[in-house]
Design a protein around this nucleic acid. Sequence first.
DNA 1: AAATAGCGCTTTTTT
DNA 2: AGCGCTATTT
Length: 752
Amino acid sequence: MNDILKELNTEQQAAVVHTNGPNMVIAGAGSGKTRVLTYKVAYLISQGVEPFRIMALTFTNKAANEMKERIMQLVHNQDARNVWMGTFHSIFARILRVDGHLLGFPSNFTIYDTDDSKSLIKSIVKELGLDTKTYTPSAILHRISMAKSNLISARDYAEDPELTTYDRVSQRPQTGQIYATYQQRLFKSACMDFDDILFFTNILLRDFPDVLFKYQQRFSHLLVDEYQDTNYSQYLILKRLAARHENICVVGDDAQSIYGFRGANIQNIFNFKKDYPDHILFKLEQNYRSTKTIVEAANTLIMHNKEQIFKKIWTDKEQGQRISLIKAATDSEEGILVAHAIFENKMNRQLPNSSFAILYRTNAQSRSFEESLRKLNIPYRIYGGLSFYKRKEIKDLLAYFRLVCNPHDQEALVRIINYPARGIGETTLEKLRVAASEKDKSMWETMLNLKADACGIAPGTAGKISDFIIKIRSYQAQLANTGAIDLAEHIAYTAGIIRELKEDQTPEGISRMENIQELLNAIRDFSDRPQETINEITGEITTTANPTLDRFLQEVSLLTDLDSDDDKENKDKVTLMTVHSAKGLEFPYVFVVGLEENLFPSYLSMNTRAELEEERRLFYVAITRAMDKLTLAWAMNRYRWGNLSFSQPSRFLDEIDPQCLESTQKVTAPLNTVRKLKPLPQEKQHADPPDFRPEDMQRIAVDMTVEHDRFGKGKVIALEGQGANRKATVAFDQAGKKQLLLRFAKLKILDE
DNA sequence: AAATAGCGCTTTTTT
DNA sequence: AGCGCTATTT
């Protein structure tokens, strides 16, 4: 172990070997923050601390896994994998699965992602008879999220004059009511949203002293990465857990605090100092990542912030190249110039694609870079944006899995009860919703005890509901004793999703099918990997083989696409991502693009000094990702929501010491002004098929062969309803099973 | 019931 | 420009 310590500088060593009592490491960009944390855990293990008594909280799961790997190398001890290491959310979700029953949650509770939460809020807003344009789901969710991060329950919220006044002033007086209903609904569905994981962890530790005691005892050492981005709720969990041993080490950099918008509280740094007056403070100021030019540029920039903990970041490295500035005429030219710059550097210096990164403020900016990179045949990978797990087809299949594992999960139920179409429409759903809310039961329970006539549901529809229930139950019966991949494939093939997708042979349809296959592959990988399980008594983590599908779901709900892509064959790609997701990463060549007023800084963050300073810290994070060479780009004109608008260069460009910048400015502008003409809309066909006979409608009966102008030939399987509402279920040779309203469908009888 | 056309709306960052 | 929702069509 002493050999290992030699790989650290004096300050880093001091921080690593200080293992007793509270301590804080303020670490500048590129100063080896993660290194200190990794070595500290390794050092603790080498000093005889049992791995499962160490809790290390990181910002991403990827960081956690990399750290674990490194630690195992350092200590030559497989037990190191028993360190409780992961994001706040994944670690405390794990704890809630063990002890959440005390709060009334089953251990298989579902975690809602932002889309689930918004869609639930939307349906609540509608139920309460409010306007979804005033009460936009994202605004409401933001309010609820802020409340939860500050441990304000729905009841507290309603009684808080400041919050309610704010809501009244902003024309949304019912926000508190929505919050309360939202919580009830989540609870009945056995679901938690992201903020609930931290909120309920706090409640658990607050109201159940023996649980608190158990974890306080167990975790002798707490370590926290990216402490500057923790919120109040996270702060309080740490404070509670650390109260017994007070061996808590937090690592962070106030200059890189960029998550204020989601409740991160820089005050936590000062609270730490207050809570532990005898804490030791370490400062890491030597940067090992970047050239002198880049470090100086970053230092001069951040000086413009008023609120900061003073430190002087310095480096031993060479002066390096000056920072290039690209001034483009338009956003598409910005893309071209950046792609060409990458191409030239790559060729002249024989660099791999992976040494380049393009960083932008908003996901929407990625397009022009994708286009130009593609034209030059430069492989790239985009992170963020529409992530894999947010795609419709993936969410659909996952919803089946979710419903099987937790039938009370209402968002999952609503999503798939009529997908693929099985004749349970919006009207029926509304009746079920009303019935469920009257009986104060989950929708699933309501369906199980369905008294159809009482809810005004037709017998035919009730039959379809019961078919659906039987299907889901048959999956549920297999859950416990079937491996994840076997059940997943069984569901994918028998629920009709794959059948539905196979019909669609458009490029999008084919890509959707590929995505489903990719999801199944991911589950296969997961099934092949032994799973960690917590031993309830000792807290030790043991592994079990052949995990079930619910284990997969629990894992997947907290993943981001940043976490899960390492072993892709082709790793040598240019990276495109937002500055936020670039936190903690580094690249030899970095392009920070879109440096314009109202874009970076964002027009939404220029109202207060605090917001503007956060934007500046964000830019600070962006430029400190660069190791060797930094290029900044901006466009004089940019397409914004459909039309071209003029831009001013970002004020941040003027805040960098001009000595760090290249004096020359490139201006080349072969403008691509030819835009494709849209084809004229086609004349619609209103006429009936020439040989259509209206009287056929009366004569149609089960087992007849019929023809539809779009779906082709098919056989009538069932008929229901009377008069104008008469419907036929037809099995088409090509298009599959469809329900059609005879009044419209114009079916032609081919064979009786 | 299912598909489509057209309209208005939104646009920050993410565990 | 792209999306989701509503109104309209089949």
